[in-house]
Nucleic acid binder design. Structure first.
Lengths: 108, 108
DNA sequence: TTCTTACGTAAGCAATCACTTACATTTGTG
DNA sequence: CACAAATGTAAGTGATTGCTTACGTAAGAA
């Protein structure tokens, strides 16, 4: 889990994900979009691979990378955990109000 | 955006978020759940505050922290972006199949 | 086999990170 | 005011990170 988040928490890696999100691209072409050197991008690709956020496919001498959407599921569900807390809190507040309301009506 | 992701990409900070996700807690009580020293946790709280993932409320000499669900929205939508790509790809595949199907039927 | 293309890997380095100990600050209490 | 409680801030340190240059490797072309 933390691996995925660490992989996401870097601007160049985020940009790589955006680049390959719509089309599979070879390492060289990905690197061409950055000011950094090719090895730097290669290392970023490795981090993303290890995190399970992208997939690699070899074709001759080239290596093609594409997004691996399943890899995002774990992060999404973790985030939903935190997000849902707000909904739960809201729900409890509403129920609390309803109880208060009922008590008031009962006293009438 | 990257600030939020970096804030999330640390085990102790994730645990802090889980701790205060259901109840507002004072810094000291949060720190008590960890092996690390109190200042270490204080610094983590600062990172989470800067990232907008938690909120602080002062009560006398204590500082109470609680989750700030709105802060997760940006991360959620970014993640959805990547996730949706898969849906788009699927959609395109289906449409492609439908076109092929129509052509086949036309030839019959 | 030799050369070229498209890559990854290794080593080294400056910046950043997470942590610790020591000290400062703020609020309530006798 | 003096003191205690709850917490933040500063400074220093070892580990990790992202980058670069130099080198290694695997697949196709001559």
């Amino acid at each position: 889990m933390v691996d995925k988040l660490k992989a996401l928490a870097e601007p160049n890696r985020l940009e790589i994900l955006r680049l390959i999100s719509h089309e599979e691209l070879p390492a060289g072409e990905i690197a061409r979009h950055f000011n950094a050197t090719r090895p730097a991008i290669s290392q970023h690709l490795h981090v993303l691979l290890d995190a399970g956020l992208i997939e690699e496919r070899r074709e001759g001498t080239r290596r093609l990378y594409r997004l691996r959407a399943e890899g995002f599921e774990e992060v999404r569900s973790m985030l939903r955990e935190f997000w849902d807390v707000r909904l739960q809190a809201l729900k409890q507040k509403v129920e609390q109000k309803q109880r208060t309301q009922r008590r008031r009506n009962g006293r009438k």
